[in-house]
Every structure is written in C-alpha cells, then in structure tokens.
Design a protein around this nucleic acid. Structure first.
Length: 560
RNA sequence: UGGGGGAUCGUCUAACGGUAGGACAGCGGACUCUGACUCCGCCAGUCUAGGUUCGAAUCCUAGUCCCCCAGCCA
C-alpha cells in the first residue's frame, strides 16, 4: 500500500471505532485480528472485504493479523484450496509474517478442553441419531426436549468420549454435546454439538484423528490461543456469539477475545455464494475458479483487475451492520480509475473492416508518432506504421447514420488517430449486401492529425495498418448473471447470462502489442482496458477485457 | 406465535442532541486528436405515528418492513 492509501483507509467505521476505544481505554494492549478461511474453495471478492478489514485494522492500529485456516471438516477441505488462499491473500497485498496457523494445530488442546467440560458436567456424549437429535431440538417457536443421554455421569461420558477418539464407533454413532439449555430461544444454545465422528483423512493431520471439533468448539478457542483481541466475522454468526462467549467462560483459555459482526458484501449481477461458485465450476459454466468472469480473486486477477483497485473498492463500500447490495458500477468505476492512470494506450481493431485510401501511393509505408499516455508525457511515444490499406472498427462506419454520429459514413471526413484526415467515398458491398470495404481519400496535408487550414472533424477513430497488424484473439466479458439479483426468483442457474463471454478471433492489433509480452494493463483506445491472457502464443496474443471505457455514445443510442 | 439483528438520496456510506455530507449512478454543460480522462453545475434521503427537547437521523413509546437461526457445515 502507498502512504496515501493507508491514510485514506483509516476512514472510520463502527468496528474501527470499537478498536480505537478499546485501545484508548487500555482494555487491550494491542490489536490482534485474524482472517480465518475454511479451505473448501477459492477466495472471492467478499473475502477481500474481510481480508482488508482484518489486515487493514492491524496495520492502522499497529497490531498484527493472523492467517488461520479453519480446517475442522476434512470431508470438505483440500490442499489445493490452502495453497490458492495463501497465494490470493498475498496478491491482494497482505502479509501475515510468521503468523500462519490452522485450527488443526490446536486439535490436541481442544480435545483436552472437551474433557475439561465433561469433568465439569458441562458436556455429554449423546448416542441419539441425527434424526432423533433434530426431533428433540424443537423448532423456532417450540422449545427442545432433553436427550435421554443428557444425564449420563461424568465417568461414562469420559469413557465414551475417549472411545470415540480411539475409533471404536462409526461416523454418526455418537456426538459430544455441550450441556446448556434445551429451552433456549437461541437454538445454538440447545446443547450444540462439539465433536463429531468423522473417519476421514485430514490434509494436515492425516488419519491421526477420527473425531473433529465443530466450528463452534474450535473458533473461539483458537482465537483465545492466538491472543486475538477482535474476532471479526459476518452477520450470520451473530447467533453464535452467546455460544462463543459461553465456551470461553467455561474453559481455561489463555485470553478473552470478543466477536464483532459486520454485513457481508453483495454486488449486483454477482453471486458470492461458495456453494454456487463451486457449482459453476463443476458444471462447466465457467472454465475454472480463475475464469475471468468469476468473482474469485483468481478470476479477477486473470481478468486484469489491479489488487489496489480491489482494496480501494472495499474501502469505498465501507463496513456496517445493515445488509446491502453494492452497485457493480462502483466496482467498475474504481477499476477504471486505477487503470486510467496505469495503462499505456494502444490501437486495436476488434471487428475489422477494410479501408483503402485510393490516393495514397501503392506500396508506400510511413511511420507516425503516437503518444503512449495522454496524461503522462514521461510515458513517451511509439511509432505506428501506416499504409494504403488499413482496418478500422466496423462500428465506426454507418451507411445511414443517425444524428450526432461523428464517425465514418459516405462523404464524411474523420481523423484517423495520430495519422490523417480521411473522407469516405464509397462503401463496397458483397453479394449479400454487406459492407466489406471502404474506399476513401486522404488529405496529405493533415499528417499527424491536424489540418493546416484549421478545419475540424467531429470524430477521431482508431485503426491498424493491414501490412503490419498482428492477428489476436480478444475475449470480452459480461456479467455471469443476466439479472442484478441472481436467484431472487428461485433457480439461480436460470439467471445465467448466455452472453457472458464473447470471443473475437479476428481482431487486429498494432505491432507494439505483439512485441510487448509483459503482464501490465493496456488501454485499447476508445474501447477499454485489457490484459494479456496466459493463453497467448508467440504471434498470437490473447487479450482479456478487464472493463470497457465509459461510453456515453452507446448510452445515448440505447436510450434513444 | 420463539431468539437475534437492521432500516439515511436510485445504490453504498457519513453524522455520536446543534447547518443531513461524500462516493457511485443519473441529468446538463465546458474541454478534447480516445463520444475516454478532467472540470463545472444539477438532481436526490433520515421507514411510519406520537412524545421528550430551545433543537432529534441521533433519546423515549407504539407500529411497519427487511435479514439471520431449527447441520454431527463454516
């Protein structure tokens, strides 16, 4: 982060207010936060909010932030996800230093604490089937009933729990439960499960364990072990806070963290449900977790979104307790702002239409100077080859243009960016009546783009020289979902956008784009920001559109 | 009908009993060798009804609407 960004990120929200107050009142000596993902999928932009919050607070208040994998359910977790998560957090710009932890690091201690609870008469082994437990739990409006196993003695509970650990029972046969209150209005307090039997191989502990702590039994204690002061999570865990507190109060934990909840991020046209994202990958609706249409950090990275833009977006969104849905336009605006400053400009024709300059000498070639960045003279210039045959954008010609159309049409003069004024004399059509070529004339006196007689043109269009253009593939991305509120009407897959990907295989780009194989962003003038995809091959670059330029002409047309 | 939360411009978010502000979106204009960028202007909000107060988005009362919870998921 730059200094200014760090400063800007110090903007206040209710959580930072709490941290500041705790520090002021010396309730805590220093702030310690943590980002605790479960390694059962890839990180997405919703996680970015949590990452920026936790790591950001640690930075701003001079504390530290841990990366902790909440790996308590080996049936869902994989090493691939662990590796991807570490990579993504680093890419986002954060560093956990020495503080990389796993809930599984604490399995032995958690087990001891479970026995502690049993000895204190506050936990018991229940032989009920899952169905029976559900039946006795009651409903939202009716209290639950006590299990017949609730009154088991300490010795029997201890024996049974040890035999659970020893692997004497099959999955689901028994469970360790906290003894709290089956009549509690908060269902999480109706004797929640603490340990379940899972004969499964864990990515880190292998087959050492066949019983695993639940989220509730692992999370708060892990926080306490690490000395976390502010345990920040999303709103749906609000109901778990009483249980979080109950466990910390009934166990000999080394510290006393506090949980605070904030509203998770939602964005229009976007789905941030790990379940649905997994489904998109598994059913082949996207090419993988890093498909540039995915809201995953891997997808956004491949799409060309700068990490700094992601951080800035999260900052602009803010942190509150009210559920909300952020306009995708805010994200796009933030991306453009960053890319506008960073991206050198280039000319690329996405949907080529041949243009022949009849009065330009056959076989002649010349080079014209083009600036690389209009707002940054230090970016310098480059040479653009020019010739009698060019390609221009199909959209830049209309045989019968509407009012205010400032581009090419029969008889109209426009400027070719950095080159000459040309006037369209004729549109050549094929048998099907489609325009296949434009015959034009140019004014040699306008070399460089200005007329000595001072006359103006209303439009400037981009182009490439036929003899020097490099063929390229360009991938245009639209939202994965066609509706701003995917799934709101039931079947979320029914809301998939059939036009989320448009592949242009016949694009032509200026030579400089083929020569440069670095990874930085680039602006195709008048079109948008692009980045080179890893599918690029020598002589055949592939570009992803990160985001289009604002297009008030298109808006006018659509509106009119 | 249980428990826990939340309501401020179209959207997100400030305000901490004292001028309801910012950003995005939208609209209009200036500038322009990108219909981009930039700049200027405009539009627009405290869920409702009472109450306390010199003064209420903020405090009180009563409503309304929205979200979360009945995994041996996290």
């Amino acid at each position: 982060m730059t200094a200014t960004e760090t400063e800007a990120a110090a903007g206040r929200d209710f959580i930072r207010d709490i941290v500041a107050a705790d520090l002021d009142a010396k309730r805590v000596a220093g702030v310690v936060t943590r980002f605790p993902p479960e390694p059962n999928g890839y990180l997405h932009i919703g996680h970015a909010k949590s990452i920026c919050l936790n790591f950001g607070i640690a930075q701003e208040f001079g504390g530290r932030c841990h990366l902790r994998f909440d790996d308590t359910n080996p049936t869902k977790e994989e090493q691939e996800y662990i590796d991807a998560i570490e990579n993504d957090v680093r890419w986002l710009g954060f560093d956990w230093g020495e503080h990389l932890y796993h809930a599984s690091d604490y399995f032995e201690r958690l087990y001891e604490w479970a026995e502690h609870l049993i000895r204190a008469g506050k936990a018991y082994v229940d032989d009920s089937s899952p169905e029976e437990m559900r039946r006795l739990r009651g409903t939202l409006t009716e209290p639950g009933q006590e299990s017949p196993f609730r009154s088991r003695g300490v010795a029997e509970n201890l024996d049974l729990f040890r035999r659970m650990r020893a692997g004497e029972f099959p999955n689901g046969a028994r469970v360790l439960r906290a003894k709290i209150d089956m009549a509690a209005g908060n269902i999480n307090l109706r004797d929640p499960a603490l340990y379940r039997i899972l004969h499964a191989e864990h990515p880190r502990t292998g087959t050492k364990w066949c019983i695993y702590p639940t989220y509730d039994f692992a999370h708060g204690q892990s926080d306490a072990i690490e000395g976390i002061t502010h345990s920040i999570c999303t709103l749906e865990f609000e109901d778990h806070r009483p249980l979080y507190d109950w466990l910390l109060e009934n166990l000999p934990v080394p510290s006393r963290p506090r949980q605070y909840e904030f509203a998770r991020l939602n964005i229009t046209y976007t789905v941030l449900s790990k379940r649905v994202l997994t489904q998109l990958v598994q059913q082949g609706h996207v090419s993988g977790w890093d498909d540039p249409r995915m809201p995953t950090l891997a997808g956004l990275r491949r799409r060309g979104v700068p990490a700094a833009a992601l951080r800035e977006f999260v900052r602009r969104v803010g942190v509150a307790r009210a559920n909300s849905v952020v306009d995708l336009a805010l994200f796009e605006s933030t991306i453009r702002e960053h890319l506008n400053k960073a991206a050198p400009r280039r000319l690329a024709v996405l949907r080529p239409l041949k243009l022949v300059i009849e009065n330009y000498p056959e076989g002649a070639t010349e080079e014209l100077a083009a600036i690389n960045h209009p707002e940054d003279p230090a970016a310098g210039t480059r040479k653009l080859p020019f010739g009698r045959e060019l390609y221009v954008e199909r959209d830049d010609f209309m045989e019968n243009p509407p009012k205010k159309f400032f581009r090419l049409s029969p008889g109209r003069e426009v400027r070719l960016r950095f080159a000459y004024f040309v006037t369209c004399r004729e549109a050549v059509k094929n048998a099907a009546g489609e325009v296949v070529e434009l015959r034009c004339t140019y004014d040699p006196a306008t070399r460089g783009g200005n007329a000595p007689d001072g006359r103006k043109v209303q439009g400037t269009i981009h182009w490439v020289a036929a003899a020097h253009a490099v063929p390229a593939e360009v991938r245009l991305y639209n939202t994965l979902f066609a509706r701003p509120d995917p799934g709101a009407r039931g079947d979320i897959m029914a809301d998939l956008n059939p036009n989320s990907l448009e592949v242009l295989k016949d694009a032509l780009v200026e030579p400089a784009l083929a020569a440069d194989t670095t990874d930085g962003p680039v602006q195709f003038e008048r079109q948008g920001y692009f980045c080179r995809d890893r599918d690029s091959r020598p002589g055949r670059p592939v570009f992803n559109r990160t985001v289009g330029l604002r297009d008030s002409w298109a808006k006018t047309q659509a509106g009119g």
